[in-house]
Each structure stands twice: as structure tokens, then as C-alpha cells.
Amino acid sequence: CKVCGDVASGFHYGVHACEGCKGFFRRSIQQNIQYKKCLKNENCSIMRMNRNRCQQCRFKKCLSVGMSR
């Protein structure tokens, strides 16, 4: 997965992504979610083991690796 490094389940929203990141991105855009501000200057490292800790940084990384509708 380009977002968290887990095993990708396919090509989702323009990038190779796992089911977790695919679902997270889908919910984020469909529900237009505004995530809580990052407590670490929006510089969190997103990996499989910690991908749920900072939703703002995870969504930012989804966009930075090329995920789009």
C-alpha cells in the first residue's frame, strides 16, 4: 500500500492501496470528514502498525501519494 506499507489489495482511487486505506479514503471523501488537527505538526509517519493514530496525517498522505476520486 502506497499509504501505509501494508499489502495492497488492488488499484484503488488511483494508487495501489490496502483495504484499510481504501475504506478510510472512501469514507473521508463521501462523508466530507474534517479531521482533528494533528498534534505533531502534521508530520506523522503513517505505517501499517500506527495508521489509525492520526487521521489528519493519514488523509494527507492519501492525497500526497495520488489518491483521488
Rank of each mutant, 00 (worst) to 15 (best):
45 S>L: 10
1 C>G: 00
55 Q>A: 13
26 R>F: 08
65 V>D: 05
16 H>D: 15
30 Q>W: 04
52 N>D: 14
4 C>D: 14
16 H>C: 07
41 N>A: 10
57 C>Q: 05
32 N>L: 03
52 N>L: 10
6 D>M: 08
47 M>S: 14
8 A>I: 10
8 A>P: 01
45 S>F: 15
43 N>C: 11
7 V>L: 11
50 N>M: 05
24 F>I: 00
17 A>N: 07
39 L>Y: 12
68 S>E: 11
6 D>K: 01
33 I>F: 08
63 L>I: 15
6 D>H: 02
49 M>Q: 14
24 F>A: 00
7 V>K: 14
4 C>N: 07
17 A>S: 08
29 I>V: 10
69 R>H: 15
55 Q>Y: 11
32 N>A: 08
27 R>G: 07
9 S>F: 04
8 A>E: 02
46 I>E: 07
26 R>W: 15
47 M>A: 12
55 Q>E: 15
21 C>Y: 11
1 C>E: 05
50 N>D: 11
45 S>W: 06
41 N>M: 05
48 R>Y: 13
66 G>L: 07
59 F>G: 08
60 K>E: 13
43 N>P: 07
8 A>M: 05
53 R>H: 13
39 L>I: 14
46 I>M: 11
49 M>T: 14
27 R>Y: 02
54 C>N: 03
31 Q>F: 13
51 R>M: 08
69 R>A: 15
38 C>H: 06
45 S>I: 12
39 L>K: 11
59 F>T: 06
37 K>V: 08
67 M>S: 00
49 M>S: 13
4 C>K: 00
59 F>P: 02
56 Q>H: 11
45 S>K: 04
55 Q>G: 13
26 R>V: 08
61 K>R: 10
37 K>F: 01
43 N>Q: 11
3 V>F: 02
13 Y>R: 04
5 G>T: 02
12 H>S: 09
12 H>F: 06
36 K>E: 14
5 G>W: 04
67 M>G: 03
1 C>Y: 07
49 M>D: 15
63 L>D: 07
64 S>Y: 06
50 N>C: 04
51 R>P: 14
54 C>V: 03
42 E>K: 11
29 I>Y: 01
19 E>C: 00
6 D>G: 06
48 R>W: 12
68 S>G: 11
30 Q>F: 04
49 M>N: 13
38 C>Q: 02
54 C>G: 01
25 F>K: 10
58 R>F: 14
52 N>Q: 10
26 R>S: 11
45 S>V: 12
55 Q>M: 06
65 V>M: 12
58 R>L: 15
54 C>F: 00
19 E>S: 05
16 H>Y: 11
40 K>W: 14
65 V>L: 03
65 V>C: 05
45 S>E: 15
49 M>C: 03
48 R>K: 12
4 C>A: 00
7 V>M: 12
36 K>C: 07
12 H>I: 03
25 F>W: 08
30 Q>K: 10
1 C>R: 08
27 R>A: 09
31 Q>Y: 09
61 K>A: 08
69 R>S: 14
8 A>V: 02
30 Q>E: 13
54 C>K: 10
4 C>P: 01
30 Q>D: 13
32 N>K: 08
4 C>I: 05
27 R>I: 15
45 S>T: 10
39 L>E: 15
26 R>H: 08
29 I>W: 07
55 Q>T: 02
58 R>I: 02
12 H>V: 05
61 K>C: 03
29 I>H: 00
15 V>C: 04
29 I>C: 08
63 L>E: 11
15 V>Q: 03
50 N>R: 08
24 F>Y: 05
29 I>Q: 08
4 C>V: 00
67 M>E: 06
27 R>F: 05
6 D>V: 05
18 C>W: 03
43 N>A: 13
33 I>Q: 05
68 S>A: 13
56 Q>L: 12
13 Y>F: 13
43 N>H: 08
24 F>G: 02
47 M>H: 13
44 C>Y: 10
47 M>Q: 15
13 Y>P: 01
67 M>C: 05
68 S>F: 05
47 M>V: 12
5 G>D: 04
55 Q>D: 13
28 S>T: 15
52 N>S: 08
21 C>R: 10
39 L>G: 10
60 K>C: 02
26 R>E: 12
61 K>W: 03
18 C>E: 01
36 K>V: 09
13 Y>G: 05
18 C>K: 01
64 S>E: 15
65 V>R: 01
28 S>G: 03
58 R>W: 15
50 N>E: 10
27 R>T: 12
33 I>N: 08
12 H>Q: 05
32 N>G: 11
8 A>S: 09
55 Q>P: 13
48 R>L: 14
6 D>W: 00
68 S>R: 08
46 I>L: 09
50 N>F: 11
3 V>K: 01
38 C>S: 05
16 H>I: 09
2 K>L: 06
51 R>F: 06
15 V>I: 08
39 L>P: 11
5 G>R: 01
32 N>R: 07
63 L>S: 00
68 S>M: 12
6 D>L: 05
38 C>F: 01
2 K>H: 00
20 G>C: 11
32 N>E: 14
69 R>V: 15
48 R>C: 07
56 Q>G: 09
54 C>M: 04
54 C>E: 02
51 R>W: 11
30 Q>N: 07
29 I>R: 05
64 S>M: 11
19 E>K: 12
4 C>E: 04
55 Q>L: 12
39 L>A: 13
26 R>K: 08
37 K>R: 08
24 F>T: 07
40 K>G: 14
35 Y>F: 14
18 C>H: 03
53 R>E: 15
59 F>D: 02
23 G>D: 14
53 R>A: 15
5 G>V: 01
53 R>C: 15
25 F>D: 03
54 C>L: 03
46 I>T: 08
69 R>Q: 13
27 R>P: 04
57 C>S: 01
7 V>A: 10
49 M>E: 14
54 C>S: 03
41 N>R: 06
60 K>F: 13
42 E>D: 12
52 N>P: 03
15 V>S: 00
51 R>E: 11
54 C>H: 07
36 K>D: 07
41 N>E: 11
49 M>P: 10
33 I>K: 10
67 M>D: 13
67 M>I: 04
16 H>Q: 15
31 Q>A: 06
6 D>R: 01
69 R>K: 15
49 M>F: 14
31 Q>T: 09
25 F>L: 03
58 R>K: 06
59 F>K: 01
63 L>P: 02
13 Y>A: 07
48 R>P: 15
65 V>T: 06
24 F>S: 04
51 R>L: 11
33 I>V: 10
52 N>V: 06
59 F>Y: 09
13 Y>E: 11
26 R>M: 15
7 V>F: 11
42 E>R: 04
13 Y>L: 07
67 M>Y: 05
66 G>S: 09
30 Q>V: 11
66 G>P: 02
33 I>E: 07
63 L>R: 00
40 K>D: 14
45 S>M: 14
14 G>P: 01
29 I>T: 09
56 Q>T: 12
64 S>L: 13
18 C>Q: 01
30 Q>P: 06
25 F>G: 01
69 R>F: 15
47 M>R: 11
44 C>S: 14
16 H>K: 06
29 I>G: 01
19 E>A: 05
66 G>F: 05
18 C>L: 03
66 G>W: 14
24 F>K: 00
68 S>C: 11
58 R>Q: 12
48 R>F: 09
33 I>Y: 10
47 M>W: 10
14 G>T: 01
4 C>S: 01
62 C>W: 02
41 N>G: 12
8 A>N: 06
54 C>D: 03
17 A>C: 13
66 G>T: 01
2 K>D: 06
1 C>W: 02
63 L>C: 06
45 S>C: 12
4 C>W: 01
5 G>K: 06
5 G>Y: 00
47 M>F: 06
26 R>Q: 14
14 G>I: 08
18 C>G: 01
7 V>G: 07
61 K>F: 05
18 C>Y: 01
5 G>N: 04
60 K>Q: 11
41 N>W: 04
37 K>Q: 11
18 C>V: 02
36 K>R: 05
58 R>A: 09
13 Y>T: 05
61 K>N: 09
